[in-house]
């Protein structure tokens, strides 16, 4: 923290003094100025239309690519069909496995993990020759706000997440699902669970009957675990 000024018993301005600064018109003006792009004042209308046209063309192009990709893989249709609820999760054997496997399989994520390990290995090699201290970014604890996965210890989830440097100092970490997921997943009995990190996002790869479903999660701590985690973070963050 920078220097802290302490104003003790300093007389405060009156309400009238403060109200002199009140200017709603200015707020309205500023808000509209930054929300509606007044490009007419900055560039000519000609360039403005050209920009809009270019944006529309780019949008159509990107949309076409996305639509083509998803329609060929039949991604959305099968993903939502398969993941409707926990009952259907238990019947996944009847679903076309080849399509689901295109989503994000354990193999893919193993490859991601391998790539990550490789990068770490290369980083360590570099560090071996150059005396640079590697900075470990410790995960700042978040408190659980909804239900979290209740997974058996046999999945070895603890040892999995402790392999991630940011979680290595914690125990009692829980995982709270976010985004598109079925509530039944939280209670389902899975045959295998793997924690995967991809682009700073964490996924639990939930497997059953040969099917793997990726579920994006947020690492969280529940009630007292959260308070303890804050202490652990405070004790380790500066090291």
């Amino acid at each position: 923290m920078k220097e802290l000024n302490i104003n003790r018993d300093v007389p405060q301005p009156s309400d009238d003094d403060l109200l002199k600064h009140q200017n709603f018109e200015e707020v309205l003006k500023k808000a509209s100025h930054t929300t509606t792009v007044e490009t007419g004042n900055l560039v000519s209308k000609k360039w403005w239309y050209f920009g809009v046209g270019l944006f529309v063309v780019a949008g159509v192009f990107v949309s076409t690519i996305i639509a083509t990709t998803f329609s060929t893989k039949n991604y959305k249709k099968n993903y939502t069909t398969v993941n409707q609820d926990i009952v259907e999760v238990n019947k996944l054997q009847e679903v076309d496995l080849s399509i689901l496997n295109n989503i994000l399989t354990i193999e893919n994520n193993t490859e991601i993990q391998k790539e990550s390990d490789k990068n770490e290995f290369e980083q360590e090699e570099i560090e071996g020759t150059v005396p640079i201290k590697k900075v470990v970014q410790i995960y700042y604890p978040k408190e659980a706000s909804t239900l979290t996965f209740k997974l058996e210890e046999s999945f070895g989830l603890k040892s999995q997440y402790q392999k991630f440097e940011e979680f290595s100092i914690y125990s009692n970490l829980s995982f709270q699902p976010i985004g598109d997921y079925q509530s039944g997943w939280l209670k389902a009995s899975w045959s295998e669970v793997q924690l995967v990190k991809k682009s700073d996002n964490y996924f639990l790869m939930l497997s059953k009957n040969g099917i793997t479903i990726p579920c994006q999660v947020v690492p969280v701590f529940e009630s007292e675990d959260y308070v303890n985690a804050l202490d652990i973070y405070a004790a380790n963050a500066g090291k």
């Binding site: 403060l18 109200l19 709603f24 309205l28």
Partner: peptide, 27 residues
């Protein structure tokens, strides 16, 4: 209608101002 925000602006202006002033010190 953003103009209707004025009611909320006037209602909370002083509270927010004092909140900020206590932490910033300069009017």
């Amino acid at each position: 209608n953003p103009s209707d925000f004025g009611v909320l602006y006037k209602k909370y202006y002083l509270q927010i101002f004092r909140f900020v002033l206590k932490r910033v010190g300069d009017e």
